[in-house]
Structure formats: C-alpha cells, structure tokens
Design a protein around this nucleic acid. Structure first.
Lengths: 202, 202
DNA sequence: AGCATACTATAGTGACCACTAAAGATTGAT
DNA sequence: ATCAATCTTTAGTGGTCACTATAGTATGCT
C-alpha cells in the first residue's frame, strides 16, 4: 500500500508447494518481534535468525523490512483487533460503547508480558520514516472508525471526542510499553471511562 | 547519574578560557536535535556537524552519546519546566491545579513546529536502552511530584490519579509528536481537564 | 623558554545496518 | 530428460553506527 506494488494476498497466493519457508509464520514471527522491540530495534539479522532463513529469502518473500513491517501490522490488526463492530454497534449507548472500547484496548495492551502496548501506536514513534507513515495510516483508519460511530448520535462532538479517545489510547499504549503494571494500566483506563461519561453527558 | 561519574556542573566548571567549543551551547543544540528527531535518529555525525566539531571533541566534553542525552534532558527540564511549584501550590484546589498542569503541558508540547511533544516521554520509547532508562527516571520524578501534591487532599486517590495524569500527558505528547495540530491537542487537553474534574468530585 | 595540560583534528576502529549479486538446488511442465 | 522458474545459499556490497588511537596545537604555569 505504501511501499509495495504487490499485496499481502498476492504474495501468499504465489506460494507453491515448493521447498520454501512458511511466509505466514514468518509474518507472525516478525509481528511478535516488531511488537516487542519496535521497528528500529529489530534488524534483518534478528529476523532471519528467528526464522532460520537467510536474508535473500526474506527479501524474496517480503520485499523489504518496511514491507514486512506492514504485513506484520496487517496481521496484528487481523489477529488482535477488538470486535469493534460489536463494541461500537450503532444501537449502543455512546458512552458505554466508548468506555468498553478503551477498557478492551487496555486489556489488549497488557495481556502479554513482552508484547506491550499497541503495535500501531508504538510504530508511530519509530525513527524510520516509512514505519511511521505506515503506522500513522492505520491509526488514522481507527480514528475514522471511532469518529463515524460517535457522529451518529453526537455529531457536534464527534471530532474532538474521537481525538480524545485516540489520544487516550496512545497514552495507555505508551504506559503499557514503558512497563506500567497491568493493574495500574487498567485502573487508568477505568478512570478514562469515567471521564468519557462526563464528557458525553455534559 | 546513570552513565557518568562526572556531573554536568563539574564538566561545565572545568571549562577554562582555552580554545574550546561552548559546552553549554553544545548541550542546547543536542537538546533540540534529540527533541526533534528522537535519540535513535540522532547520530554522532549529525551532532558533530551541527556543532561544527569532530567526534573526539564531543567525547572529551560529554563522555558518550547517552551522557550527552542525559545532559540534554537536564537542560530540557531546566529550561522548559513548567512552574510546577506555582501550578501545584498546596493551597490550590486539586482539580483546578491538575487541569492547569495538563493545559500548560499541552501548550508546551505544541509550541514548536519542530520540537513536538515531551522530550522525556518520547525518550521512553527509544530503541536504545540507556536512553529509555534515563527518560524513565525523569518521568518517575515527575509522577512523584504530582502524587505528592494530590496526596495532601485526596490521599485515597493519589496513586491512581497520578497515574492518570502521567498517562494523559504521555498521550498528549505522543499525539503532538505524531503531528496532531496544536488546536486539536489543546482541545483534547481541555477534555482531559473536564475528565479530571469529574474524577475528583466523584 | 620549557613543560605539562587539555583540548583539537586526522583518520581510522570493528560492528552493525539494510540489502543483493551470483550461483546452487529443487520443483513443475513439457 | 530437459528446461525454465523460483526458491535457496554463500558471500558479499557500500554505508553508517558509536567510538577512539594517535598526533598536533594552543594554553597556563614555572
């Protein structure tokens, strides 16, 4: 989408029965490494060692480190995505829905001891510009989704409330990544939920 | 404190009238670069070019890149620090004080077009472990200061409220760093303030 | 003047970075 | 069986990383 002319699906489908390493598994491993360490701290050497392959195999399969990162982010979203269609169902109370979204996201950010925070939010801080652009794009997608939910019932507050939710999630992700214990992250998420209630009822 | 056996003051005082580059200015330049680009994205080459010196001069003056980063953070705190002793004056209303703290911090995070967010908060995401440790330490200092203010009047909520404030600031810093326009960052800070009110009065 | 000190600049260190040229190996199709 | 395609491996590319050994130079002290 940003750096590749060939999509994730196209690449996967090209895989034949030939002797080859498992591309899907490669993306899963890369996702874990990128999530745990961040884009900048994961080198090609670390990736190829984790996959037990050589650099050319990695490049033949994914094109570049940035490409692989984007595949990994897509996998992250596909696997870890919250059931947002249920959480942000149109008929739900705005406040309840947003509170649950923040709570569920916080749970996601601390459920692993090693892969902390939101991979997208953390990717936005990478020193590498491509990694930042990719992450920013998926963050924007999320914000739009949240905004479109809010706009149905609170159109006048949709923009600023969407910003508020996204920024809150960025803070929770940062805290989780920095090592704040799960219980305290969830406590902050709970306080954020109380804040959301007061913002919507006012 | 973490990586040096020689303090900032000691180094500065050692400066004689000999032909030498301005150490304080070097720290100021490094601070701007680190703040704008992040620890990882600023190499020795970039620093020495900006200061118009050679690497050995930089190492003679500051010891290491991590040392220089710590000096830069100290300078950042000294120069950009909010008047926290006034904002968090003991006699002030807890809610008003915390709201102003968040507002002033948000203003700080977006006042420059290039140096966005909080240098300490952003440093906590560096790929370099030393930079993370240094940043985490100063973040912890800030949290303690906030907690000690809250504990005077709301001792039962001090810990979780302090976490809430710090996480909110981390979110605002991340948003500012990612390029969210100043007006929207300030708007989110304002909403956070409303949330703080409801948390304290409840 | 002579000397030790403290900074400087030149020029490099090995290690790592993302990435690839070239050739071998395995496959499916003919 | 042969060939083309596609993967693999080996072995590297040039570049940048943080950092430094060595030697030159300007300074203050005696």
């Amino acid at each position: 989408m940003f750096t590749s002319n060939i999509s994730y699906q196209e690449r996967i489908e090209k895989q034949t029965s030939r002797r080859t390493f498992d591309r899907s598994k490669g993306i899963a491993v890369a996702k874990s490494l990128f999530h745990e360490c961040g884009f900048d701290a994961v080198g090609i050497a670390k990736l190829t060692q984790a996959l037990n392959i050589n650099p050319p195999s990695l490049y033949a399969a994914y094109g570049s480190k940035a490409n692989l990162f984007e595949f990994a982010i897509e996998a992250y979203i596909a696997e870890n995505n919250l059931p947002v269609n249920e959480i942000l169902a149109p008929e739900r109370d705005t406040s309840d829905a947003l509170k649950e979204l923040v709570h569920q996201a916080a749970c996601l950010y601390v459920r692993s001891e090693t892969e902390r925070g939101c991979m997208v939010a953390e990717g936005m801080r990478a020193a590498d510009q491509k990694a930042r652009m990719i992450s920013n794009y998926y963050c924007k997608l999320s914000r739009e989704f949240i905004k479109n939910f809010i706009v149905q019932k609170q159109p006048d507050k949709a923009e600023e409330l969407a910003d508020y939710i996204v920024v809150s999630l960025q803070g929770l992700s940062a805290a989780a990544f920095a090592g704040l214990p799960a219980s305290r992250v969830l406590s902050v998420a709970n306080l954020t939920g109380i804040g959301i209630s007061s913002l919507i009822s006012s």
